[in-house]
Design a protein around this nucleic acid. Sequence first.
DNA 1: ACCCAGGGTCATA
DNA 2: TATGACCATGGG
Length: 220
Amino acid sequence: MQARIYRLYTNLNKLYGAQKWWPAKSPFEVMVGAILTQNTAWSNVEKAITAMRKQSVLSPAKILALKHDELAALIRPSGYFNQKAKRLQIYSDWFLSQGGLRGLSKIETTRLRTALLGLHGIGPETADDILLYALDRPVFVIDAYTRRLFSRCNLIRGDEPYEELRLLVERSLKNQTQAMNEFHALIVLHAKEHCQKNPVCNGCPLTRSCQFYKNSRKGE
DNA sequence: ACCCAGGGTCATA
DNA sequence: TATGACCATGGG
């Protein structure tokens, strides 16, 4: 099973090449993006990030200095703006209290993950986005695309707990941070650029018609 | 007009 | 522990 997951990774890598995620200019911007993209199309998140950059508020101190309503108005295009404004301020406050990137770099990964999950508004996927793409820790991100793709490739049932899938993939990738970084990026790319746009593929990995899907199934 | 997107929290049983 | 309601915009 782990070998098949690893092969899925190498197949995607051959198909698309290195992605060099996350699309952001700084680790803190990755963190902001991770919160804003919760159940939201990335195109909408970009509008919010752009608005924040235009106002020069892409830093924890600036985010905390804003009133709730001001921040909510800025990030309006990303949806759930009231929730997310609150989450961004709670996160920024915590980030500063930990001594910023310096401080976080001194905390062991498992402890850090637990701390992140303790924050209001930070669930497993958001925490793992932050750990992997902002802090370069060997943690894999499980999202809806991953579940669907793995399920359609008969690698999993689909209803496994988040934690079980995360550990499975991490083992499959031999705990290599760079591979985890690329694999998740490739899965998202495949879903967006191939499955959602390619008329031949017609919604893969939600259908059986995709060439890629056939190559990744049991029995080849 | 309808569907859903790179989730998470909270109330209820 | 397991569902369901709720949050909200913008693009297809």
